[in-house]
Design a protein around this nucleic acid. Sequence first.
DNA 1: AACAGGGGCAACCGCTTGCCG
DNA 2: TCGGCAAGCGGTTGCCCCTGT
Length: 382
Amino acid sequence: MGHHCCSKQKVKRGLWSPEEDEKLVKYITAHGHSCWSAVPKHAGLQRCGKSCRLRWINYLRPDLKRGTFSDQEERTIIDVHRILGNRWAQIAKHLPGRTDNEVKNFWNSCIKKKLIAQGLDPKTHNLLPASRSLLHGNGAANPSNNPAQFHSNGATANGGATTPFTISSPTKAAAYDTVTAPPPPEMSAPAMYDVVTNPAGMFTGHDQAAAAAIPAGYPYPDNGGGVLMSFRDQNAGLQTSMDFMNGSSSSSSMDHAAGMPNGNGFSQGMGAAFMDVTAGMWTTAVDSGMCAGIEVVQQQQQPLPPLQQPQGLVQGEVIGPPAVMNGGGAAADKGMDMMDVSSVYGSAGATAFDLELMESCGLFCGGGGGAGNAMEQLQWDC
DNA sequence: AACAGGGGCAACCGCTTGCCG
DNA sequence: TCGGCAAGCGGTTGCCCCTGT
């Protein structure tokens, strides 16, 4: 059975011959591919347009890298996959010269097995049950064999089953070159981000590079720019924190649970914020104030400049378990009244926060300042 | 040397999405 | 608004090659 587009045609299938490749390359080079369905006819190929397109995209494009994946690329794939799941095209965007098909095959043939061998579920990146029991056993586990150390740059996990998580794409490293405030000397290692996932699917983070990427003082121009994000799972009663250290003593905390000691909804006038594993997320979320249900509390009493006070927000309302929050205000203006936090943080041990939801919230969208922030590298493609 | 089994990878299938008339 | 078409995308298939017996 052929493609829809070529079911009426007599087309060749299977592997491409060098002659066919040459014809296709010549034609595309000379004329481009404005319409793939017309390409085989004009190029003199007995193939359907879809097949031509696939061949060009996956193998004949001049900008393809080919060859084996580097360790760096492998780490990038793992890291982004943890966030995005099997969205191979999105993952491939973080690997210049690689195609989605290539990434997918590499994942299925190599990475997946490696993760399993390390006791990690390749789907969730959580520890497999067997490995959890080992970790929670008598403590005699050899740290070098501890899957929790996988790709960790040394940050200490907060106990329990953990899933270290790193982002270290080449483009990310380049982006951090733009950082004006350098990280502390001991943090000058290449951009590595560790998110430690606890059993409830929460995560903590400690991203020195991302912290450094935050403009000094942002979102509070008067302070040093350090940001501490704190998360609490209302149901599980768990709290984790994330600090964007920037060599500053000031910090802010973010908490999605109303009734936290630091605040009550949006009473302090801050926009709702969401965390991201990268710095750009912070800017976007705080600026837009779109995501209801998470408050940002300024621990140091420094007034916000008027222009940075998100307008139109109302106090978040916790409807009660399951954690559903009614943001209203700006969020409602964007057409999202309700936000199921459980789907974001992943209840019942699910590790992946709901990227789709956050994307739909527009949390990943918007300009991070054009300085090549990490979110731009992640190309959420809103 | 022949064969079987497994792994890797190129290509295909079919669903979804976006665009345009 | 709807339908058709093309492109995008993820899952799956099947071929080829390598390795072990």
